[in-house]
Simulated assay, not measured.
Amino acid sequence: MRFVLAPEMTPDLFEELLDCWTEATNAGGAVGFVPPVSPEDIRPTAEKALARTEDDLLVGFDDDGRVACWLILADNGSALRAHWRWVVRVMVHPKHQGKGYGRALMLAADDAARGLGLEALQLTCRGGTGVDAFYASVGYREVGRVPGSIRVAPGDDRDEIHLIKWL
């Protein structure tokens, strides 16, 4: 797999990222939506997320040159916090699940962050999915939770878990 930080955003790349987001959501990924979704459901959010010029997109391309996984290193908007970034929209295309691409993506994010001169990465994840254990396995530690702050469906509220990794 080949990782590219801040690739040129072409219409084709945007559509591949959107496809990955749609497929990841429909496979049960906790990436901002609840399945079932279509690309058109996600498109407005994707357009906003991928248009922020202060953020850095990190994309993992498979051997065929297609988007396999991606995340955003999001600027936090504060000079007082310029030494760290948020890791958001972490996803692996379902056809690549179980191949270690998620771990490779997170380690590539560490390398990219160090290259940007950052000292830490923070992220949040949805409780009840088990993904917090994955993040712990790549060096993140839980620093807090907001109980019931994510409403997946009526009667299905989840904690938002806050994690940090010092580089």
Rank of each mutant, 00 (worst) to 15 (best):
V131E: 04
F134L: 12
G139A: 04
I161G: 01
L5C: 10
G144L: 05
A136S: 13
S149F: 07
E40T: 15
I164G: 03
F3R: 08
V146H: 13
G117Y: 05
A6T: 11
C125G: 02
T45G: 09
V143P: 00
R43W: 07
G32Q: 07
A46D: 13
G115C: 13
F14K: 07
E142F: 09
R114P: 07
L123P: 02
A74W: 01
V34A: 11
L13H: 03
D64C: 08
W70V: 11
G128L: 05
R81M: 15
F61C: 02
E47R: 11
R89A: 14
L18Y: 02
K99W: 12
V90Q: 05
G77A: 12
V34D: 09
P39D: 13
D159V: 04
R52D: 15
L17I: 10
R66C: 11
F61P: 00
F61S: 01
I150S: 08
W166R: 14
E15K: 12
H162S: 11
T129K: 04
Y140K: 01
G29S: 10
S78E: 13
R145D: 03
G155A: 06
E47V: 13
Q122L: 07
W86G: 09
F134M: 00
E119S: 14
T22Q: 15
F33A: 00
A30P: 01
H162C: 12
